[in-house]
């Protein structure tokens, strides 16, 4: 079944056309990378798929799991239910800093439990246990009662993923989840995402700034430029030369800074260790 179907989606901010007739379709269980230089429309596209933004009026149509999310710039009637089917994580983690990690994760089930209970903040023992399990799944079970702000960037991102696990959504939109993380944390977050994709069969669309991660973790890549899809196909085919062809000088932005000649020798040594095989056991707790 098709998880995400986008047809003729455009979005204009003032005079800028952020999205320009986007067409794409992602099947359930896929893990797809979305790449593009800054300003190419990655985040805007994600926000439309998540139902946080409406496209321009017109022939546009966004369907999630076969249901209309928005059509012709109008939010569909099932939008709120669909939202709970879509987990979202972003570069800024979007956790509530002053709340404990536990509550931040429990928030994930708000869409599934009776509204009065969620509003009063009454969570059952079993639900709390599930939250701890979700945190264990991403490798940070001991942080449950720390304030979210006390976690490192990589840990915060994993807590955000735990929230999505708690949400039990079918789709995960990850908007530049590793853009502000150091390489080790970035790899760990990507490992967790790949693991969720293979075990929960969660459909994942992850926007990335650096094409290296797409090649390692995502079989398929969609590339954007100026709000248009310029490439949609296997990630392996995206060589650096091809990127230069697609983006011109802007392609420098899409390649890891580690590829700079100064560090390339060290990187070549590291490369064999980097595989798709997720190794959660290796994640150190907290």
């Amino acid at each position: 079944m098709t998880a995400i179907a986008v047809e003729k989606l455009s979005k204009t901010f003032g005079r800028v056309k952020a999205l320009n007739g986007i067409d794409l379709s992602i099947d359930e269980g896929e893990m797809v990378a979305l790449i593009g230089a800054s300003g190419s429309g990655k985040s805007t596209l994600m926000r439309h798929i998540a139902g946080l933004e409406r496209g321009d009026a017109g022939a546009s149509h966004v369907r999630i799991l076969g249901e209309t999310q928005q059509k012709g710039g109008k939010i569909g009637s099932k939008a709120r239910e669909l939202r709970s089917q879509i987990g979202v994580i972003s570069q800024q983690f979007n956790l509530v800093n002053r709340l404990p990690v536990m509550i931040n994760v429990l928030v994930g089930i708000l869409g599934r439990i009776p509204r009065w209970r969620g509003t009063l903040g009454i969570f059952t023992e079993a639900e709390k246990r599930k939250a701890i399990e979700a945190l264990g799944r991403v490798g940070i079970p001991k942080t449950a009662w720390q304030r979210a702000s006390t976690l490192s960037g990589g840990q915060q991102q994993r807590a955000a993923i735990a929230r999505v696990l708690m949400q039990r959504s079918k789709i995960l939109l990850a908007d530049e989840p590793i853009a502000s993380l150091d390489p080790a944390s970035a790899r760990r977050v990507m490992d967790v995402l790949a693991d969720i994709n293979s075990r929960e069969k969660m459909t994942i669309l992850v926007s990335l700034h650096q094409v290296e991660y797409a090649r390692v973790y995502c079989p398929r890549t969609i590339a954007l430029r100026d709000g248009k899809v310029v490439y949609d196909g296997p990630s392996k085919a995206l060589s650096n030369d091809f990127l230069t062809e697609l983006y011109g000088s802007a392609s420098e932005e899409l390649v890891l800074p580690a590829d700079l000649p100064v560090e390339s020798a060290k990187r070549r040594r590291d490369k064999p260790a980097k595989t798709i095989e997720p190794n959660l056991g290796a994640l150190e707790p907290a």
Binding site: A50, L52, R80, E81, R83, S84, Q85, I86, G87, V88, S90, Q92, N94, L95, V96, N97, V107, G108, I109, L110, G111, R112, R115, G118, T119, A160, R163, Q167
Partner: peptide, 13 residues
């Protein structure tokens, strides 16, 4: 606004 969006995206009221 971003944490609020995070909450909204879970399907909260």
């Amino acid at each position: 606004p971003r944490p609020v969006e995070g909450i909204r995206s879970t399907g909260a009221s």
